[in-house]
């Protein structure tokens, strides 16, 4: 425990990790109920192609990746609407393409190195102070968006047609949620890696949804599970000398498993 107070890099890792985890968990509850569990996984693969493109053209890889992910998120939304694909099909098609293009671009640019791989697996212990601030701002933005549109998001997730008839601008809010997810995934990927971002979008939310009776409780439980996974996971990684991102995901799964035993019955 002393190490947490002693080492600034651990404090930064906890701070940024908790912020990203909470943002992902809150969005994740809506995404899971919208049957969009794989959107984080898909967008992170597409964002990887954006990073590779940025490295190739030697322009800010993060900014290029963000633009690519936002366009892809809106494209997936459009594809689901107009092509009549099921959610997962559109995501699978785009994510496979994203990864393939990413590998090709990385190879052409000759940047298939450790810096690229850090986006895949993250490097939470090497987080800079500025990245902690970025994570906090991102988490704040997601929480504000969710708080402002909380009831509209819940209404359209529960009964889309009734919400639309009641005047909820469902397509604009779809786009807002897609863009928020894309931004979360890209910023999170830089800090915790593709593996952890996708896991944060699904596992804590799944834990909240299987436990809670009320919607608000599901969001709260997801946020607590995500935060606890970061803190406990980082401590375990430090003590056992395991990779941080992998350990955090395993811990979140273990918490999910414990809550599964105490899940509410249908």
């Amino acid at each position: 425990m002393d190490a947490f107070f002693e080492y600034a890099f651990l404090q930064r890792a906890v701070g940024a990790g908790v912020c990203i985890a909470v943002a992902c968990a809150v969005l994740g509850v809506f995404l899971l109920l919208r049957k969009d569990a794989m959107i984080g996984h898909g967008l992170s693969h597409i964002a990887f192609a954006g990073i590779a493109l940025g490295l190739l053209i030697r322009q800010w890889p993060m900014a290029v990746s963000l633009a690519v992910a936002v366009v892809a998120a809106l494209g997936i939304m459009k594809l689901k609407e107009s092509a009549g694909f099921h959610g997962d099909t559109a995501i699978a098609v785009c994510s496979s393409l994203g990864m393939a293009v990413g590998v090709i671009l990385a190879s052409i640019s000759g940047r298939f190195d450790a810096s690229l791989l850090s986006y895949l697996f993250g490097d939470i212990l090497a987080i800079e102070p500025a990245e902690v601030v970025l994570s906090a701002l991102m988490a704040l933005a997601v929480l504000v968006i969710t708080a402002v549109f909380y009831h509209r998001f819940m209404f359209m997730t529960f009964d889309r047609e009734a919400a639309q008839a009641a005047g909820v601008p469902v397509r604009r809010l779809d786009a807002l949620m897609s863009v928020a997810t894309a931004i979360t995934v890209v910023l999170g990927m830089k800090i915790v890696g593709i593996l952890l971002v996708a896991a944060f979008l699904v596992i804590p939310a799944a834990a909240g949804l299987q436990t809670a009776v009320r919607f608000k409780s599901a969001v709260g439980i997801a946020a607590v599970v995500a935060s606890a996974s970061v803190v406990v996971g980082l401590a375990a990684a430090y003590l056992l000398d395991w990779p941080a991102s992998g350990t955090i995901v395993v811990v979140s799964f273990l918490i999910f498993g414990i809550l599964f035993l105490f899940r509410r019955r249908a």
Partner: peptide
């Protein structure tokens, strides 16, 4: 709707 939807 999803019968497991957590809404009171």
């Amino acid at each position: 709707f999803d019968p497991l939807f957590p809404a009171s």
